[in-house]
Nucleic acid binder design. Structure first.
Lengths: 197, 197
DNA sequence: GTTAGCATGTAAGGAGTTACATGATTTT
DNA sequence: AAAATCATGTAACTCCTTACATGCTAAC
């Protein structure tokens, strides 16, 4: 296995799982779906597609130009092995799904993730961030008075950002738990309430 | 110029500007000061120090072991050129000081940054993030209904995070402006109010 | 007695970007 | 007439991490 990035590979498989696509469109969707988390350039996407092809997880099909003068496009599609592999990745709930790199992608595909796995990932992520909160608080307590106002403001803001992240995860976890009790409304998720009404 | 990272180089110069230090301690301070923004390992710090030494921005002084059995430490110190270079970096207020990479370090050294430069950096950073807000909002409007609840939640949360960042910057900018009117209290900065009282 | 901290370094490699190459089409 | 969008790719390069090498001390 070529060991390309994991994140990119996972994301590509996930998008191709929705529909076959060519590289150019894949990249747009990629950066739209992952949004804030990550952006990829062609320089990493195309080589990744090649390695997925070599690994037999996707197959390519060269389409004739759609319109005259258009370049011919290479449409990629998941193979049976590719689907299997993606399903296996979806089931992962270890540290690789909790950390900064992995969490975004895993969350982006929560719609196709098992309920138990979702809960485990959310909880893992939360406790990871809680550790970070503790670290920040300790550092703040230590520096307090020792550093200038700006450094203090930076640390304080950093701390509050992570705390906010933890609250968000807690809400999501509660939603998941509630949904487990009453499995009628499966696809309902937090109504778009504003944080600051 | 070896062109090592900029961020790391800048941060190292800034810390050595406070006091001479050896590598090991430098790294601790680095990761404490930059906190949430970035973490560096020895594998990048030591080579960076070597290149700063080669560039004549720092000088080294081998201290005899402090206590018996302790390894001898190499204390680094800014040279005159190093101080000059650091001052020049502090004065930078272009895009390199606004983007994700650079803003953290520049802000961490705001205590030694000129008031005008501070304001320019804060405003540059804010407008950069406002662009990002617009992008997210457009993407959200487009996807609305087209994606599943989780993806929506992810995008919404991403948007709110950036909006929050913008509000924070706006407060800092107001503080700077106020301080410019009444330059008596120069080192006062936002009293540690909690966001959610 | 083994883990953590102090202290300095290097080599290999991973993960990705930038810049380039190519070329038609639509928008400004 | 220039710039953006579509479309695919590659090569060089950057920046940083991991793992290793070394060795002593203090704490658990």
């Amino acid at each position: 296995m070529a060991k390309r990035s994991d994140v990119l590979e996972f994301a590509v498989l996930g998008l191709l799982h929705e529909a076959p696509m060519h590289g150019y469109e894949l990249r747009k969707r990629l950066n739209a779906t992952l949004g804030a988390f990550r952006a990829f350039s062609y320089g990493s996407l195309y080589p990744c597609l090649k390695s997925l092809l070599a690994a037999g997880l996707v197959s390519e099909q060269v389409d004739a130009p759609v319109a005259l003068g258009k370049r011919s496009r290479i449409v990629y599609q998941l193979t049976a092995e590719g689907k299997e592999h993606f399903a296996a990745l979806l089931d992962e709930s270890g540290p690789s799904a909790w950390d900064d790199e992995g969490f975004g992608v895993h969350f982006a595909f929560f719609g196709r993730t098992d309920a138990q796995t979702r809960l485990r990932i959310l909880e893992g992520r939360r406790s990871r961030l809680e550790e970070r909160v503790d670290g920040f608080r300790a550092a703040l307590a230590r520096s307090r008075e020792r550093v200038d106002g700006y450094t203090l403001a930076l640390h304080q803001h950093g701390l509050e950002s992570v705390e906010r992240e933890v609250r968000w995860l807690s809400e999501l976890i509660d939603d998941e738990r509630r949904r487990r009790e009453s499995p009628e409304h499966v696809n309902e998720i937090e109504p778009p309430e504003k944080e600051h009404p």
